[in-house]
């Protein structure tokens, strides 16, 4: 077994710090939605998958029901199962370590691990663990800072927090729109969600947009 190149550590830590800093936005979004500082921090500790966390608090902020919030968050989290499927044969751990590996299985840890492929299996494994635990550390730290900051600010609209949340979603969406087809899916989902808004309870249009994904992915293209 060779020592992983320093580049692996550098990749992992720079991703961990950058992504972790987004935690400020989540901390603020949690408070703006009406969650307490403790609840907002527990989201980052226990749910620990950014887009799902934003979805749960976002649906509640939009006046949606608990079921819509939970469903939107869970559906956004399903991609982590596919990441786990790819990471399981790589990390090859059992028991508590497997539980820890599962909890750290997110976009960033999987992404950095897969990016290390040319450097070998050991580098991939190191990339996964260092990125996963690094994001975990910084994400939770910055969530606390964001939550405390938002708590001190008061009225969310007065500080633009109500626009920061959709802007955060746009920022999460943007890098995924790599092909024309994906951009069409995004635009269709937006139009669809707005069209059904007057007819469905708050929060449900978000869940209903999955229909666009199902139709869009049904046939091979």
């Amino acid at each position: 077994m060779t020592t992983p190149p320093r580049e692996t550590f550098r990749d992992a830590l720079s991703v961990a710090l950058t992504v972790g800093a987004y935690g400020v936005a989540f901390g603020a979004a949690g408070i703006a939605a009406g969650f307490s500082v403790l609840q907002t921090c527990l989201f980052s500790l226990l749910t620990f998958t950014g887009a799902s966390q934003f979805a749960a608090v976002g649906v509640m902020a939009a006046g949606g029901g608990a079921v819509s919030a939970i469903a939107a968050a869970t559906m956004l989290g399903t991609r982590n199962a596919l990441y786990g499927l790819q990471m399981a044969p790589l990390v090859r751990v059992k028991g508590l370590r497997r539980v820890a590996a599962a909890h750290l299985t997110i976009d960033e840890s999987t992404g950095v691990a897969l990016a290390q492929t040319p450097r070998g299996t050991h580098a991939m494994r190191v990339g996964f663990w260092v990125t996963g635990s690094g994001v975990f550390l910084f994400w939770n730290l910055f969530t606390l800072l964001g939550a405390l900051g938002a708590k001190a600010l008061g009225n969310p609209a007065s500080w633009g927090l109500d626009a920061a949340v959709p802007a955060a979603f746009l920022g999460l969406l943007w890098p995924r729109l790599t092909t024309t087809y994906l951009r069409v899916i995004a635009a269709t989902s937006m139009v669809f969600a707005l069209l059904v808004t007057p007819w469905l309870p708050a929060g449900v249009p978000i869940i209903a947009s999955v229909l666009v994904a199902v139709l869009g992915g049904w046939r091979e293209r």
Partner: peptide, 20 residues
């Protein structure tokens, strides 16, 4: 389908949070 689910949900969340 799973590859498209985050795209659809995040898109819907942008408009639901921004314009509703």
């Amino acid at each position: 389908v799973n590859a498209l689910v985050p795209i659809s949900l995040l898109s819907a969340l942008v408009v639901a949070e921004g314009f509703v």
